[in-house]
Write a protein that binds this DNA or RNA. Structure first.
Length: 139
DNA sequence: GCCAACGTTGGC
DNA sequence: GCCAACGTTGGC
């Protein structure tokens, strides 16, 4: 089991929209970055991820689960781009902001802290546990 | 709204 | 294959 972080602008695709899709889940489409795509290719069904809102909120707001492995992105004919499907698992009790991550030395190496532009990021098991603790949820 | 950082593109 | 130019992203 591996852990990830999915970043989205809330006015493009928000946590609420993700929740509304229920267990059917939704394609994480529109990614046009090789690093992010490679991360998605590495995902397995059942992997967990954080759902992060960029821009104004800059906070982790929920937990998602991979429910379909990488497949061609339906929003493009370019076969270089693939995406996975994810479904909402549960919201956080306390949103974990970017600032909180930056302030915690245990998260100093987190990709979110060091390369906030990457839209699909790996999260280590240790980082997962720390963030879940801050969020007030079970890992 | 600005600007820095990063990734991609295309000319050579 | 290198590198300059450009576009996009996202924090501030």
């Amino acid at each position: 089991m591996q852990y990830w972080l999915f970043k989205s602008e809330p006015n493009t695709w928000s946590w609420d929209q993700q929740v509304a899709k229920g267990n059917a889940g939704e394609e994480w489409d529109g990614v046009r970055n090789y690093q992010a795509r490679n991360n998605m290719r590495a995902m397995k069904i059942g992997d967990r991820g954080f759902f992060y809102h960029s821009l104004k909120e800059k906070a982790i707001v929920g937990v998602v689960e991979v429910c379909a492995e990488a497949h061609p992105d339906s929003t493009t004919d370019d076969d270089r781009w693939e995406c996975v499907d994810i479904k909402a698992v549960k919201p956080v009790l306390t949103p974990v902001t970017l600032q909180m991550c930056k302030d915690d030395p245990r998260l100093a190496d987190m990709v979110l802290v060091n390369n906030s532009r990457l839209s699909v990021q790996p999260v280590t098991e240790a980082e997962w546990a720390v963030v879940c603790q801050m969020a007030g949820i079970d890992p």
